[in-house]
Design a protein around this nucleic acid. Structure first.
Lengths: 275, 275
DNA sequence: AGCCGCTTGTGAATGCGTGCACAAAATCCG
DNA sequence: CGGATTTTGTGCACGCATTCACAAGCGGCT
């Protein structure tokens, strides 16, 4: 039970992945907080949330987006098959994912788009607003701050930070930049829920520590470093370099496959797979 | 055997990739190219590359970065334990990951930093340069193009694209912007290996199709859509909204836990781990 | 030279996630 | 009203990934 192996968010996707974060994950790593007390099977998903696998959570967010697109096109109900192909996953997996949050489908018919949407939103905690702080107003931070409402609504950016004295006080995207020394105070005062780190790698750990001091429990890290955080803090990382390197690996692998396929051209013709 | 379930990159992530990455992240989804012909178990890593799990590849990239940091600080050798904690993973997992690429450690001593570095680089295909094209020169695309050499070296940005007529021809980060209709030609001509999609979601699929037409096999997608691609194309996605929603889920989950913990106050107080 | 301590590399076990296949349920139609 | 049809929800099995635990190997010390 004392497995407090700090293991980052990722996967990184899987996670993750993932995402990749992974991914943080890769892969994601769901905490082994199984069992505990209740073995109930109530359709209500009140405190069943903790049982949802990390990978499924990531996909739920995808379903949510696909659903919103469908709603815009006037769809009222959707089958698992439709939704699955639109989201790029197996329909069985989709149904299993949905079963984690309750049974909101109608057999023989499918799911009501709006019901499913609001249920997923509820589970993901999107009913309220999660206040976001962006630290590091460079190229990326600037872009993030200018998103304004941030991807979709529900994640208002409510604080900006940087070290550069020339930036302090300057409004970016309608919000003044504060000094990073004020992170703990301001985050605590404004009840910031999510900290986004867009600083150079050297500053990231210090910034992260200050965010944690400010009571921030969730961090989205764009800096190419592995952050060390106390166990109760959740870190997801988005790492451009790593994503590129993973792709690079696939380029290399494909090149190799092609080479060896050229070499060992006609062999093992037993499998007439056409793919 | 005919499990050609297209399943996008990553979970992630995490990731797993995703992880996330992956999955993404987990995360990640390694292609089920098992069995087939060879069931060999040769320790040589020549064509064993395909056997490296996706999640491990993501971590290798992390190790690589940690190693370069250590090299800068003058470290010559490093033990699996050191490297593992610095990378935020279990040491056994690290050793297993490294074992996928060969045996380059010395028992009782550890790994030589430079040897390990170059071996990982080799496996990840970082010995050569992977040319990158960025499509969509908005806020994000601008930031990406201005990275210049792109995170670390090895990924030169060699083409930029957008639809906006006002942008065509304008140099961004020292490179002129081309029209997206020219994607296939230019990508083929310049041998672009990786396409980065930083367009609005509505344009992403069309852009992706053009990239594929141009012979690009690897895509890094920042647009919040699920891309449909032929099987030979590898897609990694970096999705801000989804990352935030995953974090949001954790906020909600923690709040719930705290609530129920407050209710069922004193129970299981065991773990005093300090990390 | 031989022993001792340290660290790697890996076989084996466990756990998690995925996908299949089918029973249960709900609608539609004759 | 009952059966046919459709689609959900899930038990089960399989495979991958993670972790443990230990033998094998290497350097240093006496």
């Amino acid at each position: 039970m004392a497995r407090v192996q700090r293991d980052g968010g990722d996967d990184s996707a899987p996670t993750t992945e993932l995402p990749a974060v992974r991914d943080q994950d890769p892969s994601a790593v769901s905490e082994p907080v199984t069992g505990s007390v209740n073995g109930r099977k109530v359709p209500m998903a009140t405190d069943k949330a903790r049982a949802i696998p990390e990978a499924a959570v990531a996909r739920l967010a995808v379903y949510l987006r696909v659903l919103s697109g469908m709603a815009e096109q006037g769809a009222v109900t959707v089958s698992s098959e439709e939704l699955a192909t639109a989201a790029g996953v197996n329909s069985a997996k989709l149904r299993k994912d949905l079963s984690y949050i309750g049974t909101y489908g109608t057999r023989g018919v499918g799911y009501e788009v709006d019901v499913l949407t609001s249920e997923i939103e509820r589970v993901l905690g999107l009913t309220g607003q999660q206040k976001v702080a962006v630290v590091g107003i460079g190229n990326l931070g600037h872009a993030l701050a200018n998103y304004g409402g941030f991807p979709g609504r529900g994640f208002p950016v409510e604080a900006l930070f940087d070290v550069d004295p020339d930036l302090i006080g300057i409004p970016v995207g309608g919000l003044p930049v504060n000094h990073i020394d004020d992170i703990p105070d301001i985050c605590a005062k404004r009840k910031i829920a999510i900290g986004v780190i867009a600083t150079p790698p050297t500053a990231a750990q210090a910034v992260c520590d200050r965010l944690v001091d400010g009571g921030v429990h969730c961090v989205l890290n764009f800096a190419p470093v592995v952050l060390q955080v106390p166990e109760h803090v959740e870190v997801r990382k988005v790492d451009l370099a790593i994503e590129l390197q993973i792709l690079s690996f696939h380029v290399a692998r494909n090149a190799e496959q092609r080479a060896s396929r050229r070499a060992a051209a006609a062999r093992a013709s037993s499998n007439g797979e056409v793919v």
